[in-house]
Amino acid sequence: MNAIQYLIFTLIGLYSFILVLRAWFQYCKVDFYNPLSQTLVKLTQPVLAPLRKVIPSKNNLDLAALIAAFILSAIKYPALTLIGGQVMPAIPQTLLIGILGVIKTFGEILFWSILIRAILSWFSRGNSPLEYTLYQITEPVLGPIRRLLPSTGMIDFSVMILGFILIFGNKLMYDFFNVLWLLA
């Protein structure tokens, strides 16, 4: 991968991350006036405003953001092969990479959120807006795990279990999709 391909891969991946994060923020009903929410809105509004006219949100799920992330993930690999002078991939393969890209991005959001939340819990007293935002975006996933676990007092094992599930899921997806999972 040359420098231009790496730059395109990184920029498309970063913007897909931002789009999926915005959809997850809306699903989790994160405070709209939170500075992080406002930043996501400002970064994604130029792309999502025209899409929202055609693709409405359903059940508090921002379908326009998810479809935009899918499109970006799907065109990432063909753009890289075109720049590299290689043969263009087949359309079904490109669509699969787009779907895998959204799934992988969602897993990355959860992984980094629980990791940052766990590290912040060691040092702060829980007053910061960032901690509350992390709580809001991880609780829809950690809550059901916590309900299944027996009460252990002060130690919350749900974060470790979710981390293990995410790492195992990443390995499993690599076993099933191999190189396509890396390209997603």
Rank of each mutant, 00 (worst) to 15 (best):
I8K: 00
T10I: 03
I12N: 06
L14M: 09
L14R: 01
S16H: 01
S16P: 00
S16G: 12
I18L: 07
I18N: 01
L19W: 03
V20T: 02
A23E: 00
K29L: 09
K29E: 12
V30Q: 02
F32M: 05
F32W: 05
Y33M: 13
Y33L: 08
N34R: 07
P35I: 07
P35H: 06
S37G: 05
S37R: 01
S37T: 04
Q38F: 03
L40T: 08
L40S: 01
K42F: 07
K42Q: 12
L43S: 09
T44P: 02
T44Y: 06
Q45W: 04
A49W: 12
P50V: 03
L51C: 02
R52K: 11
K53P: 11
K53Q: 13
I55Y: 08
K58F: 15
N59F: 13
D62K: 05
L63D: 06
A64V: 05
L66Q: 04
L66K: 01
I67T: 12
A68N: 04
A68I: 10
A68L: 10
A69E: 01
S73Y: 04
S73C: 11
I75V: 15
Y77S: 11
P78M: 04
A79E: 12
I83N: 12
G84Q: 11
G84D: 13
G85D: 11
G85M: 08
G85C: 08
Q86H: 14
V87E: 14
M88T: 09
P89G: 04
I91T: 05
I91P: 02
P92K: 12
P92N: 10
P92T: 07
Q93L: 14
Q93G: 15
L96F: 10
I97V: 13
G98F: 04
I99D: 01
I99V: 15
V102Y: 09
I103S: 01
T105I: 00
F106I: 03
G107P: 00
G107T: 10
E108M: 15
E108F: 15
E108A: 15
E108G: 15
E108R: 14
L110S: 08
L110A: 14
I114A: 11
I116N: 09
R117K: 15
R117S: 15
A118H: 11
L120H: 02
L120Y: 07
S121I: 09
W122Q: 05
F123E: 09
S124I: 08
N127T: 13
P129R: 14
L130A: 04
L130D: 06
E131I: 04
E131C: 01
Y132L: 15
L134G: 07
P140M: 03
V141C: 10
P144F: 08
P144G: 02
